[in-house]
Write a protein that binds this DNA or RNA. Structure first.
Lengths: 187, 187
DNA sequence: GTCTATAATCCGATAGAC
DNA sequence: GTCTATCGGATTATAGAC
């Protein structure tokens, strides 16, 4: 593994655990096993490091969305895949909480990352609206309602469930909070 | 207004905007119009200041829960009041996001605040479970399901909706995300 | 590419005058 | 209760040797 990637891996965990302002480059360097100054060979600043981390995370999620759109023909199956992926990331400590953690630190971030955060959110919402529209047509989603309202409620639920599970360090809370959403999807 | 209260007001906004590690006592002092050292006359440390802020916030919410339990006899009306109060706090910039902001900075906080955060969460969940149980008995909640699952989903939805609305600085997103939850409550 | 050394700044906290 | 002044430490970032 390249040093650059290792730095990103270690720093990504730090962002999720403590937010942008909650970790120092010194800690990252110690965990990676290099000197603090070596980080600046790979990234010109702390902000740029975090921007690179979020871009990688964002691209991973976008790739998942694209693959799921191809793999799953029914809307309900797409939503179920979304819930499962979100749970997997939570268990691996790679959850959507990164975008939440960065959102809270907004004022201290550069415009560059803030734009990426907005694009990340919009892309997820659009994908979810499409999944709900599809699912209501193909009968795999059991409840009626406006797809836009459903998509916003779904994303809020997933984000909130991840936060609650994370702060209690207990994935079961994610399962409890999303149980009813799963029951509204036909198998 | 006493200086102590003004410090708390200004610092509370800073916590919500930037998290515990995202603001400095120097900024607070400047906004209040006093010297940084004067803060230490009222609070022995930054941690103690934030602990006092969260205790005040927590007590305000607990008072709201108690009053609503007395005022609203039907479960659905209690949930509707919860959604409205949550929206009001969001508009005033006093939202539940404070507990979320602090949750993310967990590693940098003292055990004192972490316990308060856990109590805050448990109290809200217990109150919501009771409201759902009541609402399913009195017919004011339209959907069936396990009250504990419903309470967790409801809190996750509200938290997530607040986060989304806050990061876009648009209360309408809170309304969109909670619209379906409101439609499941009988008027 | 990684190191040592250090600059420049910011931060939480204290001491002591008024 | 609020001020000025300052300490001690941490943090981002740079300079230059290897």
């Amino acid at each position: 593994m390249s040093t650059r990637v290792t730095i990103m891996d270690v720093a990504a965990e730090a962002v999720r655990n403590s937010g942008y302002n909650g970790f120092s480059l010194d800690q990252i360097a110690r965990d990676v096993g290099i000197q603090k100054s070596s980080i600046f060979y790979h990234f010109s600043s702390k902000t740029e490091l975090v921007a690179a981390i979020f871009r990688r995370y964002s691209n991973d999620i976008f790739a998942f969305l694209d693959q799921t759109t191809i793999k799953e023909a029914r809307g309900g199956d797409r939503l179920m895949a979304y819930l499962l992926e979100s749970r997997k990331l939570l268990e691996e400590g790679k959850s959507i909480c990164m975008s939440i953690a960065l959102n809270i630190d907004q004022e201290n971030l550069h415009a560059e990352i803030i734009d990426d955060l907005a694009v990340f959110h919009e892309t997820n919402i659009k994908w979810l609206i499409e999944a709900f529209e599809l699912g209501m047509r193909d009968g795999s989603i059991l409840e009626e309602g406006d797809p836009e309202e459903k998509a916003h409620a779904f994303l809020a639920l997933v984000d909130g469930a991840q936060l609650m599970a994370r702060s209690h360090k207990n994935v079961a809370i994610y399962d409890t909070a999303t149980a009813l959403a799963r029951s509204r999807i036909s198998l």
